[in-house]
Simulated scan of single mutants.
Amino acid sequence: MSDDRAASTLVVGLGCQRGCPTSTLRALLDQALQAHRIELKSIKALASIDLKRDEPGLQELAVQLALPLLYFSSEELAGYQSMLSHQSQIAYERTGCYGVAESAALALAEQLLQAPAKLLISRQKYAQATLALAGAA
């Protein structure tokens, strides 16, 4: 894979409370990308935990952005604990992993890159949602 493609494989990990509206997720995404001067078209996919598989806000966001949305189990996400910028005890009690957004972003970036990934935007929290962005290490 060329460095060029690796540089442009960016993925967003999302965590949210039940019933979180799409508009909240979109506002968080737009805000984070703007703050870090990243173009929306650089984002290749979205990721979350499989417990959120039926979350309408996440599904709707993926449709709006025309991006794939992939889910990971808490076991898969737990492997990224040492790489998290923030470990949430509440997240662990609810999901079995210490940070959904960061772990999901790292898991998906590694899967797509077939190489180590790193957080490019660590956990951002906004209203009922969290977001992180990962890409090539």
Rank of each mutant, 00 (worst) to 15 (best):
L25A: 08
V11T: 06
D54Y: 10
S48K: 05
P68K: 10
L131W: 00
Y98P: 03
C97L: 12
R26P: 03
S73P: 05
E60W: 01
V12C: 09
E93C: 02
K52D: 00
L69M: 07
L29G: 13
G13A: 05
G15T: 09
E76F: 06
A115M: 10
K44H: 04
G135E: 08
T9P: 01
S73D: 08
L33Y: 09
T130L: 04
L69K: 04
E60P: 05
Q111H: 14
A132M: 00
A127D: 15
E75V: 12
Y80S: 06
L77N: 01
S8Y: 02
A104N: 01
K118V: 09
E93W: 02
L46H: 04
A137R: 02
A6W: 02
S74H: 15
A136W: 02
G57P: 03
V11P: 00
Q89F: 11
I49T: 03
E102N: 10
A109F: 10
Q34K: 14
T24A: 15
L29C: 13
A62G: 01
Q31E: 15
E110D: 13
M83F: 14
P68G: 06
A104W: 03
E75A: 08
L46Y: 01
V100W: 00
L131V: 05
A6E: 10
H86P: 09
S2G: 10
G135L: 08
A105Y: 06
V63F: 11
Q128E: 15
A107M: 13
I121C: 11
T24W: 06
Q31S: 15
G79L: 09
P68L: 07
M1D: 06
T95V: 15
A109P: 07
L120N: 03
S88L: 00
D50G: 02
A78D: 12
T24I: 13
A132W: 01
L69A: 02
S73T: 15
R5H: 12
L14C: 09
L29Y: 13
E75K: 11
I49P: 02
A137F: 09
E55H: 11
D4V: 05
Q114P: 03
S122F: 05
T24M: 13
S42Q: 14
L70E: 15
S23N: 12
Y126P: 05
S2N: 11
G135N: 05
R53W: 04
A35G: 13
D3N: 13
G15A: 09
K125T: 11
A129N: 09
S42D: 13
A136I: 04
A78M: 11
P68A: 05
E60Q: 12
L67W: 08
I38R: 11
Q17M: 05
S23E: 15
S74G: 11
S48Q: 03
A129K: 04
Y92G: 02
T95A: 14
Q114Y: 07
L33V: 01
S122R: 11
I43S: 12
L61W: 00
A66Y: 13
E93P: 01
A32H: 07
R5G: 08
Q81Y: 12
E39C: 07
Q111P: 02
L84V: 04
G57D: 03
E76S: 08
H36G: 11
L84G: 12
L46C: 01
R94S: 14
T22L: 14
M1H: 12
E76W: 06
S48H: 06
K118Y: 08
E76R: 08
L106P: 04
E76L: 03
L51K: 00
Q59Y: 03
L70N: 11
M1R: 14
L106M: 09
R5M: 13
S8P: 00
G13Y: 07
